[in-house]
Design a protein around this nucleic acid. Structure first.
Lengths: 238, 238
DNA sequence: GTCTATACTTCGATAGAC
DNA sequence: GTCTATCGAAGTATAGAC
C-alpha cells in the first residue's frame, strides 16, 4: 500500500490528457501541458521521462478505468438488455467525467496504435473484452440474436463515443448556420443509442420459444403467437 | 469545362491524404508527402501554398464525394430500409476506395474542426445533410419509428467508419494475441451493421397499421396480431 | 524536488538557379 | 514548372543552480 515511490500528481495527467485530446500526440505541446497544469516543464520530465511515456500513462489509466466499469456492469446480474443499456450509459459517464476520453480513443484508433507499447495495447484490449460477457450471456439465454461479440461491441460503442467526441464540431457547425441540431442533447442521444442497440440485438423470437423454459421473470408479457415473430424485424429486406 | 487553371495532380492529393490519415495534421510531414508522391517539396508548395491548404483541399474533396454518393442513394426511389442499407454500403465503399477517409474523418471530429475554414466546414456538413432525406422519408411513410435525423445519421455512420478505421489496431491487437477476431471481415461487419440499423430504425407496427393503406408489396406476410407488436422491442426496460 | 536557461533537432517554408 | 540548398521558427529534452 504505502509504497514509497513517487506518485505523480493527477492534475498533471488531466492537463496532459486535455491537451492530447485536443491536439493529438504530435500536436500536443509539452509547454502547454506544463502551463495548464501549473507546473514547470522540467518537472514534467522529472516525473514522466518523456512526452511519449506521459501519453501512454494517460491511455493506460483511461482504458483501465473504462474496462473496469464495463466489467462491473456485466457482473450486475440483470437482464442482458439492461446490461447493454448500462454499458452505453457507462461510456457516456466516463466521457462526462473525463471529457478527453472520446477524442483520445478516436485518435488512437485512427493512429493504428502507433505510439502504444505492449502494456498500453493490452489495456486497450481490455475494453472490448469487458463487453464480451454481456453479449455471450445475451445470446446464451436467447435474449439476443446470434452476434459476434466484437461486432456487437463496435455497434454500441461507436455511436456514443463518436457523438460525444463530435460535440465541438457540432457547435462549430450550428454556430455557422450549417446544421440545425434541434435539441439533440448528449443525454437524448444516449437514450436514442440505447433504444437502437436494444432493438438491434434483440432475438427474433422471445426466449420462451427456444426452450420450453418457464417464464423466468422476463417481461415478454405474452407467449408470442406463432407466425408473427418475424414480422417486425424482417421488413424492408429487398 | 476546359478552364485554363492549373489542375494539381491527383496523386499528390492521395499521397498527402494517406500521410494525414496515418499521422494527423500535426504529425504529417511535408517531406514524406513529397517523397510518397514522387515530387519535390517545393512543387508541393507551388501547387498548394501551404500544408494547411493542402489539408483542406483533401477534406473538401473527400466530404464532397461522400455527400454526393449519399445523395445518389436517397434519390434511388427504393424503400427507406433499402436506402439505409445502401447508405452504409456506400460509406464502406468510399472507405475502400479511399482508405484514408475513415481515419481523417475521425481525426477531424476529435480535433473539433480546428484546422477547417468555412468552406471546408460547409463541405463536411453536407454529409449528414445528404442522409437526412432518407430518414425523413422513412418516418413520413411509417417505415421508420420517429427518429432525429442527426441521431440516426450517427447511428448508421459511426459503427462502419469506426470499424474500418480500426483495422490497423485490430491487426496489432490480434498479432499480439490480445484479441481473437474470428473471421470478422469488414464485409461481414457491414452486413452486421446493416442488420442492426434496419432493426433499430424499423417502426414498431407495420405501415398498414397506421393508415388503412393496402399492403403495398411489403413483406410482412401477416397483419400483426394485436397485443404482440411491442413484445420484441420493449423487453429489458427495467 | 523545483526552477531557469539553453542545447539539439526537426520541420515548414522559401530563395534562386535552371 | 521543377529542383537544390537553406533559413528561421518551434519544439523536445537536459544541464545545472538552488
Amino acid at each position: 500500500m504505502a509504497r514509497p515511490v513517487r506518485v505523480p500528481p493527477d492534475h498533471i495527467l488531466t492537463a496532459a490528457a486535455t491537451e492530447f485530446a485536443a491536439c493529438g500526440f504530435a500536436g500536443a505541446r509539452v509547454d502547454r501541458i506544463a502551463r495548464r497544469a501549473g507546473v514547470n516543464k522540467a518537472m514534467l520530465y522529472y516525473h514522466f521521462g518523456s512526452k511519449k511515456s506521459l501519453y501512454r500513462e494517460i491511455l493506460r489509466r483511461t482504458f483501465a478505468d473504462a474496462a473496469a466499469r464495463l466489467r462491473a456492469v456485466s457482473a450486475a446480474g440483470e437482464t442482458p438488455a439492461a446490461h447493454v443499456d448500462r454499458a452505453i450509459a457507462v461510456l457516456a459517464e466516463v466521457a462526462h467525467e473525463r471529457p478527453y476520453f472520446p477524442a483520445i480513443m478516436l485518435r488512437e484508433i485512427a493512429e493504428g496504435g502507433a505510439h502504444l507499447d505492449a502494456r498500453t495495447l493490452a489495456a486497450l484490449a481490455e475494453v472490448p473484452r469487458a463487453f464480451a460477457p454481456i453479449v455471450a450471456h445475451g445470446t446464451a439465454t436467447g435474449a439476443f440474436r446470434p452476434l459476434h461479440p466484437f461486432a456487437a461491441y463496435f455497434t454500441m460503442f461507436a455511436p456514443v463515443v463518436l457523438f460525444i467526441a463530435a460535440e465541438p464540431i457540432r457547435r462549430e457547425l450550428s454556430a455557422g448556420g450549417l446544421l440545425t441540431l434541434s435539441a439533440l442533447t448528449p443525454d437524448a442521444f444516449v437514450r436514442h443509442a440505447q433504444e437502437c442497440v436494444r432493438r438491434a440485438f434483440a432475438a427474433d423470437a422471445p426466449p420462451a420459444a427456444r426452450r420450453r423454459a418457464p417464464g423466468r421473470a422476463g417481461d415478454h408479457a405474452k407467449p408470442a403467437v406463432n407466425g408473427t415473430t418475424r414480422s417486425l424485424t424482417s421488413q424492408g429486406r429487398g
